[in-house]
Design a protein around this nucleic acid. Structure first.
Length: 125
DNA sequence: GCATTGACGAAGG
DNA sequence: CCCTTCGCCAATG
């Protein structure tokens, strides 16, 4: 299986280097409003299933790339907002999520499984 | 260039 | 069922 789906979806055939980060950012930007996904799901989709850490690392620079990546829609496998502290402001993440209709309590996403947007399921061609 | 660390996740105790 | 360990790969010291 190849990651060509992403390339096709984004039509990103520029000279841009296809790095893991870039892919992560691309997938993250494809997350529909009001939905969330997990680091593992993205990693899995990209083929490096076991390296969910790298996804998180990519999120660390998510706010530095041109089109800001909606990192607030990415949570860990428990649906917990583990990365909120790494945002510009910790409150930003929850605020954005709630703004999109996602309920957050105790740093956890309510009905997380229901809102989960798995790229493997949604983007599979 | 080696060692440590990480917004994670699965498996083992 | 909670806690620890290991794996993964890139960045940083």
């Amino acid at each position: 299986m190849k990651n060509k789906k992403i390339d096709t979806l984004i039509n990103n055939t520029s000279k841009k280097k296809y790095s893991f980060f870039n892919d992560v950012h691309d997938v993250a930007r494809l997350i529909p409003k009001g939905r969330v996904t997990t680091y593992g799901a993205i990693a899995k989709y990209l083929g490096t299933k076991m390296s969910a850490r790298m996804v998180g690392w990519a999120m660390n620079v998510a706010h530095t790339v041109k089109p800001k990546v909606p990192a607030h829609r990415v949570v860990n496998r428990n649906g917990m907002l583990t990365g909120k502290m790494h945002f510009e402001t910790p409150e930003k993440m929850e605020k954005l999520l709630k703004k999109e209709g996602i309920l957050v309590k105790e740093d956890k996403v309510i009905d997380f499984e229901k809102l989960l947007w798995d790229p493997i399921l949604e983007l599979r061609v």
